[in-house]
Design a protein around this nucleic acid. Structure first.
Lengths: 333, 333
DNA sequence: GATTGGCACTCTCTAACGGGGAGTGCCAAT
DNA sequence: ATTGGCACTCCCCGTTAGAGAGTGCCAATC
């Protein structure tokens, strides 16, 4: 019953009344019977009436119950998965894959797609290079085993010569080649403790630089696509709300925090309406799945849309995309 | 007269009538007189009445005339320029400066700010590096004199060994060190002609790779900030329009084409309403200025807002930002 | 006792109506 | 050339009324 109501509401976006529901549900029941049932559902807090004598709409608890207990996700058919896989087939830089993934998500679901950049904690250190720029500014370039390149401007406290820098990078390359970045970072930190006294000034600088490069990874980021899809849902078509929502997308902070929570829970994670705890997302839901490279979760992807979304359709899509993205990134090693 | 009307309309966003205008203009004239003048202005095509018995609003030609002939931009006062300069003061990577600039623009004007990434045609080749990734995939890293790092995945037709790659990068580094990227590119192209026969297979690969890296620069890009500011203008607060506008921002193609046109015209360039030729921007204006590094124009920045914008306030801001950004980027050499 | 039809009631939505207000155009007077 | 006056137009806004959809409850039915 609730299932049919939600199904209908998701499709039409209008409060649904007893007559419609009677017709919609396969069962041969009169509207009056339905009304009784709906009364019960309302008492349980699963649906509510926007006002007397409008139909009913699902509440957050309603969606939650629907998603948790009576949702059966139909697995995607093979051909459409194949179609998706092709999107990732072309050899691409990781950054492009991420973008493809978010576009794929938003394209198929007609919602907003979001993909966090992969964490590099478990990438392997490949090499670091320091190039002098001007006076006391140095360009540090870090290359990981995944073919990811990070670069960063560094200010040193004194001018370094080219050979000094060469020496520094040689030292670090030799020391860390092939190690995982997390390990590199922690080694660096402890090294910095004792370095003060025993190592020469230049090595300290080198370590500081390397540490700065690694720091970058902490500030995470995401890529988003299809925000404008959300304008199609009339329940969000309020300039005030839209503005807040888009501002939140640009700010990134709140969304990132939310996505972060999804890394830990394994598998699909769903926030419905105000469950997220952020007011700007009150009328939105988020369906996310972590994606893995080498069996390690390195990021999260998902979609953001109105609470009224076709969960049973979206969930398998998000799930599949996470798998495909993971696989595509794996290739790179 | 037109000036006063535009001024008022820009502030209030409402059609302005003869009585208001009579009060607003310092002159001691009766509404009736004003009406005659407005009649004339309407005949000239500078203003129009949305319907009988509403006030008048400026037309595109009205704005154009206003901007071209009777606009006197008041120069920015020193203190606010200083404030802006501070934003750029901090040593930053070019990419960050670009972002700061677009945020600055949108922040001060309350419109959308846009800044193209600087062209690198005139940057100097510093070095290129090739790292083997897997099978026949190679990571190419190009560093320019400006401290800009570009990296790109390259697929070769056969597997290259580390030493081959080393050799290739040595060759290129030696050949091109310190040359300007435009020159590098053209040299590469001509070299590729004769290379077929005389040079060994590996060098061809090297040139192909380098060429691929350089190609990247062609596809330009921009950074945008403050899109949501546009939601505050009620003449744009139509979901349909907003959606088209935001889609255009994401698509980038049209906007980029428009910005491209602004590189050539020197100094401030202004598109009002449908002058841009793109329907999505019909109700928008764009104020742009090219910015230079080393006396060479390398990019464009500007703001996008409703036709009803405070041109005399926006123009000097865009102008100043272009200068400041140029100066900040100059530092880097 | 679950199910049903009937009925009065509620509430929204829409269109129609009707001032009030703002602004115009024109004209005659200054 | 400028001005006040005046009739006219059109938007805007609040009111009203009717249609439509849906509900809750009650009594009848299987």
């Amino acid at each position: 019953m609730l299932r049919v109501l939600i199904d209908r509401y998701v499709r039409e976006g209008q409060p649904v009344g007893s007559r419609t529901l009677a017709r919609e549900a396969g069962l041969e029941l009169s509207p009056a019977t339905i009304r009784n049932v709906m009364s019960d559902l309302e008492e349980l807090g699963f649906i509510r009436a926007p006002h007397t004598s409008a139909g009913r709409v699902p509440t957050v608890q309603g969606y939650r119950f629907f998603v948790d207990t009576l949702l059966k996700v139909q697995p995607l058919d093979i051909t459409s998965v194949e179609k998706m896989r092709l999107e990732f087939q072309a050899e691409q830089a990781p950054k492009n894959l991420i973008e493809s993934a978010s576009e794929l998500l938003s394209g198929i679901t007609h919602l907003a797609g979001v993909v966090t950049l992969p964490k590099h904690e478990h990438a392997l250190f490949r090499r670091v290079e320091f190039l002098p720029l001007s006076e006391n500014r140095v360009l540090a370039i870090l290359v990981t085993s995944e073919g990811e390149v990070q670069n960063r401007m560094i200010t040193t406290d004194r001018q370094c010569t080219a050979s000094e820098l060469q020496q520094a990078s040689n030292y670090l390359n030799q020391l860390f080649q092939g190690k995982d970045l997390g390990a590199v970072r922690s080694t660096l930190l402890s090294e910095m403790q004792e370095a003060r006294s025993t190592m020469n000034r230049m090595m300290v600088t080198a370590i500081q630089m390397a540490d700065q490069v690694l720091e970058e990874k902490q500030s995470e980021d995401y890529v988003m696509a299809g925000q404008t899809n959300l304008m199609e849902f009339h329940e969000l078509c309020d300039i005030e709300k839209l503005r807040n929502l888009f501002d939140a997308f640009n700010q990134k902070r709140e969304i990132l925090h939310l996505l972060d929570q999804c890394v830990h829970g394994d598998g699909i994670q769903i926030f419905i309406g105000d469950e997220s705890g952020y007011q700007t997302l009150d009328e939105c839901s988020m369906v996310t799945a972590p994606y893995q490279v080498d069996g390690e979760v390195v990021g999260v992807l998902g979609v953001i849309g109105p609470t009224r979304m076709a969960y049973e359709r979206v969930i398998p899509i998000v799930d599949a995309t996470a798998r495909l993205l993971g696989a595509a990134l794996n290739h790179k090693d």
